[in-house]
Amino acid sequence: MVRLIIDRKDLIDTISSFKKKGFSYLVKILGIDYIDYISVLYILRNLDSDEEIEIEVHLNQNDLWVPTIINIFKGADWYERELYEMFGIEIKGRKVRKLLLEKFSENIYPLRKSFKWGTK
């Protein structure tokens, strides 16, 4: 498993240069909540040589936003919507709507560590 840790301002350039080299299949966009920071992972795969690479971005709790990559991969649409409603990360560049919890308009973000079990 190869993992790159980069800054948020280099994200779009890195992903488009990887796509030109042959990594043309997006597997998943993840989010993990370590308590000091939130990290967002992009997993790409090369269909000819079967290699995979993970690109990681660290975000502070104060400014949570990520630029959108929908112009590069069309399949990133629903992954970004799920990232917005589960963690509260804003996506800059397009209007995002909630996917799974559509009818709840309050600001609850279930997958953060500060959301305790048993709350209804």
Partner: peptide
């Protein structure tokens, strides 16, 4: 390939990828 589908939907469009053979 751009949308990221998998399984029989991907293999019916001409992409030769199956997890049982490639990994």
């Amino acid at each position: 390939i751009n949308l990221g589908v998998s399984g029989p939907v991907l293999r019916a469009s001409g992409v030769n990828f199956d997890v049982r053979k490639d990994k």
